[in-house]
Write a protein that binds this DNA or RNA. Sequence first.
DNA 1: GTCTATATTAAGATAGAC
DNA 2: GTCTATCTTAATATAGAC
Lengths: 197, 197
Amino acid sequence: MTERTGDTRERIKEVALELFSEQGYEQTSLREIAERLGVTKAALYYHFKSKEEIVRAFVEDRVGQLAELIEWVKSQPPGPQTRTAFLQRYAASIDIGKQHSIMRFFQENQPALKSMEIGERMRERMLDLVEVLAGPDADPVSKLRTAFSVFVLHGGPFLLRDSGITDEQRRSAAMQLALELAGHPTPAEQRAEGATR
Amino acid sequence: MTERTGDTRERIKEVALELFSEQGYEQTSLREIAERLGVTKAALYYHFKSKEEIVRAFVEDRVGQLAELIEWVKSQPPGPQTRTAFLQRYAASIDIGKQHSIMRFFQENQPALKSMEIGERMRERMLDLVEVLAGPDADPVSKLRTAFSVFVLHGGPFLLRDSGITDEQRRSAAMQLALELAGHPTPAEQRAEGATR
DNA sequence: GTCTATATTAAGATAGAC
DNA sequence: GTCTATCTTAATATAGAC
């Protein structure tokens, strides 16, 4: 065979994600992706029927992971302990492979994703996640606190990129703030806690 | 005169900002802006020499406001009290006119802004702001906490847009979390506080 | 599965009349 | 100050040979 099975498709996804997350979706042309891979644009169209299809391919990977994470949260008792335990799992899930790039791409390319159905799916998943984490009857402030606890893990390290510290220190600082936010009980949880004492 | 002085230029800025912040910079064509105004593209080019120049015009407004806010912070004693007082001023500054749209545009169009010098200026201003608010010797977690206290005011209300609550309740929830984050003293501030007791 | 060549389209931008 | 008309460019996408 002329090449290892499925390899080219994966390499296109990887290079595209790298460029899309670094430069932006609209700022990256298929020509650029093709050149980086040492092929022509036409080759890309053999593997994907459009530019948007490439996005769909790697965002779907992340949507699948989120579905699993959401199921895990649902299987746990609601509350601050589950939220803080979740953040450890979530951090691990973005630190492997290209998941962190996917989240950065998702954050920074909302206008482009608005017209894609995969963007809508991703957005809904993130909202679902916050919903199950905070609990359906959480007040708005608690929902925000929960949403930002997750958000800090993506955006925090990036925000600290100009400080003279290591990646590991950035991740650690983000995790510390995330835990602080997630550990805060909602009013509903406080009432429940008081009732069982 | 055929029209009220400077009016058209301002109307272009307004319409462009509205479309750029709702749909994205790349997703909005000059044709669309012109149509909305009831003129042709050529008319836009009489007032602005490029699409990017329109962005520069309204982002510069915000950069100027930020400079003033930063000066105010510098004039105050550093610490949690100044940070919380600042957030009130900051919230007021984005609630007037189109400043909130400018910040949304800034957040959601980072890839497009990356190649514009006005984007760089804006980014630097925001980093300066966090620097003076948190204090130069703040640890990474405190810097993050401070950065997110400001960020919550932009992003928080937008994140809660699907909850069945009013705009006012959204703003209030965002402010509450922002104050919680900004009110937290940094380790350096805690030491200084202990020393003066 | 990848190439060359090309179709198609729409954007940003300009020239010059009025 | 705004128009019509046009230029220029570069992108996504496709046809068909190899």
